[in-house]
């Protein structure tokens, strides 16, 4: 069963066409990494999956629901789609606990003790239960991103979107976030990850999608797309990423 099904997706910002007809699917339980040069449209594609960006045309079907249908309750649909941002976007005025419970309480209408139990469970999962009463600005970037992952997981999503989750982190903090994501993948979460971490893509992804210029250039298992790319543009990009300065 496909969790995500995108058909002929176009997205323009004014006269700038960022996505020029994207077709692709993510099967349930799959981890798909989207790679590509900056400006290739990969973040825009991800943001179209939960309609943070309104597609110009085409359809985005998630869990059997066509999100581009104007009659769809987009808030209800987003509850099933977790999103992790490059800049974490934790709520700085709320404690870690409140960051993880507020949407459970206000959106899912869970009981307070239930919210708290779920928050603890997910903070445990990302290894930050001891920071439950801290405020986000007191945490390192890596810790903030792990809290952001816990916050998304607390909504019991069936799909997780990651928008360059480690790009804003100091190099020594990247590992902790990636290992949380790796654990999540092993637990069978469906994940769509925009990333520059080729090591993560190679080891964890079931499929790697290479985007350039608003189209999908190559789509296949990592051993093919990363290790043996067929397309010249993929080869050029990978040699710049894997061997910078050569």
């Amino acid at each position: 069963m496909s969790t995500v099904e995108i058909r002929n997706l176009h997205k323009s910002f004014g006269r700038l066409e960022v996505l020029k007809g994207i077709d692709f699917t993510v099967e349930s339980g799959q981890v798909v990494c989207v790679i590509g040069p900056s400006g290739s449209g990969k973040s825009t594609l991800l943001r179209c999956v939960n309609l943070l960006e309104q597609p110009t045309s085409g359809t985005v079907v998630v869990g059997g629901v066509d999100l581009t249908d104007p009659d769809v309750d987009i808030d209800a649909a987003r509850r099933r789609i977790g999103m992790v941002f490059q800049q974490f976007n934790l709520f700085p005025h709320l404690t870690v606990r409140r960051n993880v419970t507020i949407a459970q309480e206000r959106v899912l209408k869970r009981r307070k003790d239930e919210c708290d139990r779920v928050a603890r469970e997910n903070l445990e999962k990302v290894g930050l239960i001891e920071k439950i009463d801290a405020y986000p600005p007191q945490l390192s970037g890596g810790q903030q991103q792990r809290v952001a992952i816990a916050r998304a997981l607390a909504m019991n999503p069936s799909l997780m979107l990651f928008d360059e989750p480690t790009s804003a982190l100091d190099p020594e903090l990247v590992g902790d976030v990636l290992s949380v994501m790796r654990q999540l993948a092993e637990d069978g979460m469906t994940m769509l990850v925009v990333t520059h971490e080729m090591g993560f893509a190679r080891e964890v992804a079931d499929r790697v999608v290479f985007m350039d210029g608003g189209v999908i250039v190559e789509d296949g298992p990592p051993e093919q797309v990363i290790a043996d790319p067929r397309h010249e543009r993929t080869r050029g990009f990978l040699s710049r990423v894997l061997h910078p300065g050569v």
Partner: peptide, 27 residues
């Protein structure tokens, strides 16, 4: 208030007004 705050709140399924009241206005 940074744009990402509204995006994070909406991505958790909060309606616009709820996100305003709980996340944006307090900040």
């Amino acid at each position: 208030v940074p744009k990402g705050q509204m995006e994070a709140a909406r991505s958790l399924g909060m309606p616009h007004m709820r996100a305003m009241v709980s996340i944006i206005i307090p900040q």
